[in-house]
Amino acid sequence: DRYEFNINGVHFTIDDAEEELIKLIEELLKRGARAEEIEEVIRRWER
């Protein structure tokens, strides 16, 4: 599934997002994580 979200006006799209990654990102968003922090999480996840 495609997952899309915005952080401070920056648009992100993840194709074939796994449910666990989506939950992790949503938790980070609730905590007010910065875009750079979430980008790093996504990079690590994709390795």
Rank of each mutant, 00 (worst) to 15 (best):
D1I: 15
D1L: 14
D1Q: 12
D1E: 12
D1Y: 03
D1S: 14
D1G: 15
D1N: 15
D1V: 13
D1R: 15
D1H: 13
D1C: 15
R2H: 10
R2Q: 08
R2M: 09
R2T: 09
R2E: 04
R2G: 09
R2P: 11
R2F: 08
R2Y: 09
R2K: 13
Y3E: 01
Y3M: 02
Y3I: 02
Y3L: 03
Y3C: 02
Y3H: 03
Y3G: 02
Y3T: 02
Y3V: 02
Y3D: 02
Y3A: 00
E4M: 01
E4I: 03
E4D: 08
E4A: 01
E4R: 01
E4Q: 03
E4S: 03
F5L: 07
F5E: 01
F5S: 02
F5D: 01
F5P: 01
F5Y: 04
F5R: 02
F5M: 05
F5T: 03
F5A: 03
F5W: 03
F5H: 02
F5N: 02
N6D: 15
N6H: 13
N6E: 15
N6G: 04
N6L: 12
N6V: 15
N6S: 10
I7P: 00
I7K: 01
I7V: 15
I7N: 03
I7R: 01
I7M: 04
I7H: 06
I7D: 01
I7F: 03
I7E: 02
I7Q: 04
N8V: 02
N8T: 03
N8D: 15
N8F: 03
N8K: 03
G9N: 04
G9A: 01
G9V: 02
G9T: 02
G9F: 01
G9W: 01
G9Y: 01
G9L: 03
G9C: 02
V10S: 05
V10W: 04
V10F: 06
V10Y: 04
V10C: 14
V10G: 01
V10K: 07
V10P: 00
V10D: 06
H11A: 08
H11I: 15
H11K: 11
H11V: 13
H11E: 13
H11Q: 15
H11T: 14
H11R: 06
H11G: 06
F12A: 01
F12C: 03
F12Y: 13
F12T: 02
F12Q: 01
F12W: 05
F12P: 00
F12E: 01
T13P: 02
T13L: 13
T13D: 05
T13K: 05
T13I: 15
T13S: 13
T13G: 05
T13C: 12
T13Y: 15
T13Q: 09
T13W: 14
T13N: 05
I14D: 01
I14F: 04
I14Q: 01
I14H: 01
I14R: 00
I14Y: 02
I14V: 09
I14S: 01
D15C: 06
D15V: 14
D15Q: 06
D15W: 13
D15E: 14
D15R: 02
D15Y: 13
D15N: 09
D15I: 15
D15G: 03
D16H: 13
D16R: 09
D16M: 09
D16F: 13
D16L: 11
D16V: 13
D16G: 15
D16S: 15
D16T: 14
D16P: 10
A17E: 04
A17S: 07
A17H: 04
A17V: 06
A17N: 05
A17D: 04
A17R: 04
A17P: 14
A17G: 05
E18Y: 04
E18S: 15
E18W: 03
E18D: 14
E18H: 09
E18T: 14
E18Q: 13
E18R: 02
E18M: 03
E18L: 04
E18I: 03
E18P: 15
E19C: 12
E19F: 11
E19R: 05
E19I: 12
E19W: 10
E19S: 08
E19H: 10
E19Y: 09
E19T: 10
E19P: 15
E20A: 10
E20T: 10
E20W: 10
E20S: 09
E20P: 10
E20Q: 07
E20D: 11
E20V: 07
E20C: 09
E20M: 08
E20R: 05
L21Q: 03
L21R: 00
L21G: 00
L21H: 02
L21A: 01
L21F: 05
L21D: 00
L21Y: 02
L21V: 05
L21T: 02
L21I: 08
L21S: 00
I22F: 03
I22N: 01
I22C: 02
I22E: 00
I22D: 00
I22P: 00
I22G: 02
I22H: 02
I22S: 01
I22K: 05
K23F: 13
K23Y: 11
K23R: 14
K23I: 13
K23H: 12
K23Q: 15
K23C: 04
K23V: 14
K23M: 13
K23N: 13
L24M: 14
L24Y: 10
L24S: 09
L24P: 00
L24R: 12
L24C: 10
L24I: 13
L24Q: 14
I25S: 00
I25D: 00
I25Q: 00
I25P: 00
I25H: 00
I25T: 01
I25Y: 01
I25E: 00
E26G: 07
E26F: 08
E26S: 06
E26H: 08
E26M: 12
E26W: 08
E26Q: 12
E27N: 10
E27F: 11
E27H: 13
E27A: 12
E27L: 10
E27W: 08
E27G: 12
E27S: 12
E27Y: 09
E27V: 13
L28F: 08
L28P: 00
L28N: 07
L28I: 08
L28H: 12
L28Y: 11
L28E: 07
L28M: 13
L28C: 04
L28R: 07
L29M: 10
L29V: 10
L29W: 04
L29H: 03
L29C: 03
L29E: 02
L29K: 03
L29A: 05
L29N: 03
L29S: 04
L29P: 00
K30T: 13
K30N: 09
K30G: 12
K30M: 11
K30V: 12
K30P: 03
K30D: 11
K30R: 11
K30E: 11
R31N: 13
R31G: 11
R31M: 13
R31I: 12
R31A: 10
R31E: 09
R31S: 12
R31T: 11
R31L: 12
R31Q: 10
R31P: 03
G32Q: 09
G32W: 04
G32E: 11
G32V: 04
G32A: 08
G32Y: 05
G32T: 05
G32R: 05
G32M: 05
G32K: 09
G32F: 06
G32C: 04
G32P: 06
A33E: 05
A33P: 08
A33T: 10
A33V: 11
A33M: 05
A33K: 05
A33Y: 04
A33C: 06
A33I: 06
R34C: 10
R34F: 14
R34V: 14
R34H: 11
R34P: 12
R34T: 15
R34W: 09
R34D: 14
R34S: 14
R34K: 14
A35F: 12
A35C: 06
E36N: 08
E36A: 12
E36H: 09
E36P: 11
E36M: 10
E36Y: 08
E36C: 07
E36D: 10
E36F: 08
E36T: 09
E36Q: 12
E36I: 08
E36G: 08
E36S: 09
E37A: 07
E37W: 05
E37C: 05
E37L: 07
E37Q: 10
E37Y: 07
E37S: 06
E37F: 09
E37H: 07
E37N: 05
E37I: 07
I38G: 00
I38M: 07
I38L: 07
I38C: 03
I38S: 00
I38P: 00
I38H: 00
I38Y: 05
I38W: 02
E39G: 09
E39T: 13
E39I: 15
E39S: 13
E39W: 14
E39M: 14
E39K: 12
E39N: 07
E40L: 08
E40C: 07
E40R: 08
E40V: 08
E40D: 12
E40M: 09
E40P: 03
E40Q: 10
E40A: 09
V41Q: 07
V41N: 05
V41L: 14
V41Y: 06
V41M: 08
V41T: 09
V41I: 10
V41E: 10
V41G: 03
V41S: 08
I42D: 00
I42N: 02
I42K: 01
I42Q: 00
I42A: 02
I42H: 01
I42S: 01
I42P: 00
I42T: 03
I42C: 03
R43S: 11
R43A: 14
R43H: 15
R43N: 14
R43C: 09
R43G: 08
R43F: 06
R44D: 15
R44I: 10
R44K: 13
R44T: 09
R44F: 13
R44G: 15
R44C: 14
R44N: 13
R44P: 01
W45E: 08
W45I: 06
E46Y: 08
E46P: 15
E46A: 09
E46H: 11
E46S: 06
E46M: 06
E46Q: 07
E46R: 09
E46V: 07
E46K: 09
E46L: 06
E46W: 03
R47Q: 15
R47V: 14
R47L: 12
R47S: 15
R47N: 12
R47K: 14
R47I: 11
R47D: 13
R47C: 08
R47P: 12
